[in-house]
Design a protein around this nucleic acid. Structure first.
Lengths: 225, 225
DNA sequence: CTCATTAAATCATCAGATGACTTTATGAAT
DNA sequence: ATTCATAAAGTCATCTGATGATTTAATGAG
C-alpha cells in the first residue's frame, strides 16, 4: 500500500493489474488472460497472481468464474457498497428493495402525519409518468418518491440502507425502462400513499406487495426463459 | 440458481478469520497464529490462507510482516460506508433487521430444501442458550444462525446488507444480553425454522414478526420511559 | 439441425521446497 | 554483569508441480 520502499510482488501485481483495468485494457465483461499467462506476463508465480486477483475481486474490480476465467466487473474505483450491490442480480436487488419498502410502509402507516401524506402526494405528482424524453430525470423523480416513503418510516437505518442501494437501483431502473419489466402506474403508487394514510400497517404492507409483485413476476419469468 | 451453496474455501476463510478478528479473539497489535497453524485450524492449504490474509490486509484488518508474523491492525470494519447506521437508534436497527429477516424468511420458505432446513437446525442447536460464560462466543453463534436464515433466502443483496450490519448487530445483541431486552428463547427460534419448512411465506413472515415483537415492544417502552 | 457426449480450457486447491527477513538465543569479549 | 556480534529458529514471500472441479467448446450420432 503506502510503503513504497518495501515492495512485495503481490502488491506490485495488484497495482499492475488494476492499472491495466482502469486504463481499459480490458473492457467491462471482458476476460483477462488466464492465470498462467498473467504470471508469465508479470514474471511472478501463479500463486502470487491468485493473491492479487483475489484482492481485486474483493474490491469489486474482478470476478473469477471457475472453469471459465477472470472477468472485469468495473473499471472505476467503485466504493464497496456499489460494487457489492452490482454483483447481486436484478431480482435480488428488487427483493431487497421490497423488504425495505414493505417494512418502511408499515412503519410509515404507524407514524404518519397529515404533513407527510401531503408531501408524498406532492412528490408523486412531480414524478408523473414516463413519456419518453429524459430517462435519467424521470428515474431521479421516481427514486425521490420511493426514498420519501422510506423516510416516512422515520427509520434512519433504513434510509441509510436505501441510500446505499440507490445508485445501483437507479442504474438498473434506467436500464430496464421500456424493457420487459413492467413499470407500476400512477394508481399503484397512489395506493401506497392511501394505505399509509389509513394508519394500518397491514394495508400498507399489502399495497407495497401489490406494487412489487408484477416486477418480481416479470423478473422470474425472465430468469426461467 | 443457488449461488450461496457454491462458496469457495478462500472466502470462507476470509469470513472465518474476520469473524474472529471482530469478535476480538486477538486484540489490536496481537499476532495471529502462523500460516501453517491457521491452515491446520481451518483445514485449508497454506496458499488459501495466504489469499484470505492478503484480502483482509487490503481491507485494513491485518498487516503481515515478513519474518515476524501477521498482526491485527483493526477490529472494526475500517471501510464501513454504513457506519452511519451505527448512529441509528437501537430501535431503528432492530426495525431494519426485522425488514430483512421477514423478507428473507418469506423467500427462504419459497426456496427451502431439506438440506437447508437440516443446516438451520444444526446451527440453532449449536447456538444453544446463553447461560453465562463467554458473551462474544454466544453472540457469534447467535449471529451465525440469523445469517444462515438470511442466506437461506438465496438473495445475495440481502446477505451483503446483513454483512454490513453484522458488526453493529453483534453489538446490539451483546448489549441486550441480560439487559431489560427479552432474549427470544429456543422455541421462538425453532418456530422460524418450522415456518420456513412449511414452505408458506406468510407463516415464515408471521414467525419472524412474533420473534421480533417482544424486542421491539421492550424498546418502545424503554424509549417512552 | 438437435442434443448428448467428449475434450479442452480454466480456476480452486493442495503439497512441498527454497529464499528472505525478523526475532530470539548464544556466548565470547570487555 | 553488560555489550554485542553471531548463530539459530521462526515466519512470511515466493516458486514449482500436480490434481480436482467446473465451465465451455468441439464432436458426432440420430
Amino acid at each position: 500500500m503506502q510503503p513504497l520502499t518495501k515492495t512485495n510482488l503481490a502488491d506490485t501485481a495488484i497495482a499492475a493489474i488494476r492499472s491495466e483495468i482502469v486504463s481499459k485494457r480490458w473492457d467491462i465483461g471482458e476476460k483477462l488472460p488466464n492465470e498462467t499467462t498473467l504470471s508469465a506476463m508479470l514474471s511472478v508465480s501463479r500463486g502470487t497472481i491468485r493473491e492479487a486477483v483475489r484482492v481485486l475481486a474483493s474490491q469489486g474490480f474482478l470476478e473469477t468464474r471457475q472453469g471459465s476465467g477472470t472477468y472485469v466487473l468495473s473499471t472505476t474505483d467503485a466504493s464497496t457498497p456499489l460494487s457489492m450491490a452490482r454483483r447481486a442480480s436484478l431480482r435480488d436487488q428488487f427483493e431487497a428493495r421490497c423488504a425495505l419498502d414493505v417494512e418502511a410502509a408499515r412503519l410509515a402507516a404507524l407514524r404518519q402525519t397529515p404533513d407527510i401524506i401531503v408531501e408524498l402526494r406532492r412528490l408523486l405528482e412531480r414524478r408523473g409518468n414516463f413519456e419518453g424524453g429524459d430517462k435519467a430525470a424521470f428515474v431521479e423523480r421516481d427514486l425521490a418518491f420511493h426514498k420519501a416513503v422510506i423516510a416516512a418510516s422515520g427509520n434512519r437505518a433504513m434510509v441509510d440502507i436505501y441510500d446505499f442501494f440507490a445508485a445501483s437501483i437507479a442504474e438498473t431502473i434506467e436500464a430496464t425502462l421500456g424493457a420487459e419489466i413492467p413499470e407500476p402506474d400512477m394508481q399503484a403508487h397512489a395506493d401506497i400513499i392511501d394505505a399509509i394514510a389509513t394508519g394500518e400497517p397491514a394495508s400498507a404492507d399489502a399495497a407495497v406487495r401489490r406494487f412489487m409483485a408484477p416486477i418480481l413476476g416479470a423478473l422470474d419469468r425472465k430468469i426461467l426463459s
